[in-house]
Design a protein around this nucleic acid. Structure first.
Lengths: 158, 158
DNA sequence: CTTGACCTTCCCACCATGGGAACCCCCACA
DNA sequence: TGTGGGGGTTCCCATGGTGGGAAGGTCAAG
């Protein structure tokens, strides 16, 4: 007993029922038990795992990362170094994305600072945009230049 | 004359042919001219617009934002204040995302700092994850707290 | 005339998430 | 016993930008 349905599990863990099914479907979580009628049932241990996933998502981990973290969690003989590695790699990723966003923000602030922001049409922001993709002329000088080996489709880190 | 095909336009602007077609399809850019055989043709003005879009994407603007920026660009009577507003709103958005990412990074760094990172299995990082979604108990105290009015489905800002 | 580089359209995939339809199940209440 | 409502189930679709690839038309050089 003490197993709950998916709705209650969702409420108890902050993971939507949709996502719980999705996690099961993609093999992130083991298939839940079922009632005779086909309803999914979640034990306290299942809820624990769901909260684990929720927390990891909140910390920005990828599903792939979470898969690894769950495996380590269940492996009672793991070396904490492995977990640490995963966490710090993720931090590095976060910092990279932060830097990218920060560069954008700085550039825009620079441009906005030189923009009248009044009723006249002259606008250095548009002028900059219209000047096309340039290797950041003034703001935030860096040397990476076009970042050839960046992971696919993450330009804006959006 | 002096109009080029989509491949050359892509090379000249740094926007992939795929994306050029996509921008046209979604109405971000006006349909390009065509040769008798149906090949798209790009004038210097078209290339200019493509570079504009590229630059705006590099600065992290949404397609929606870019739509507005293009309209302002083409409106020779625009008030620069409008452009400035758009830019600064976007900066605020960037800063919000940065804060979120930074919070995650800090938390993880905190946890990693207390993790042995050796061959033993004890690991505060996993312990934290296993403790489920909590309102950041120790690490990185801030007051934003769960950000109730945040735009939908951007938890991790990923 | 063939070859190869280019163009066209169309469909599929990603990742994580939500929306909704169509249908089934269970419980409480009259 | 019938019914209503609030669950659950599966399945499909959409998002935002981006890439991959197939099937077929076009063009210039050899």
């Amino acid at each position: 007993m003490s197993a709950v349905t998916i709705g209650e599990a969702a409420r108890a863990t902050g993971v939507s029922a949709k996502m719980i099914r999705y996690y099961e479907e993609t093999g992130l979580l083991a298939p839940a038990g079922r009632t005779a009628a086909g309803y999914r049932l979640y034990t306290e241990a299942d809820l624990h795992a769901l909260r684990f996933v929720r927390r990891a998502r909140d910390l920005g981990f990828t599903m792939e990362d979470i898969r690894a973290l769950l495996a380590l969690w269940h492996d009672r003989a793991r070396a904490s170094a492995q977990v640490r590695r995963l966490a710090l790699d993720h931090v590095a990723d976060l910092r990279r994305r932060i830097d990218a966003l920060d560069g954008m923000a700085r550039t825009l602030e620079d441009l906005a600072a030189h923009c009248g922001g009044d009723a006249r049409p002259d606008c250095p922001i548009l002028d900059d945009l219209a000047s096309g993709p340039h290797g950041r002329p003034g703001a935030t000088p860096r040397q990476g230049e076009r970042d050839p080996g960046a992971s696919p489709s993450r330009r804006g880190t959006r």
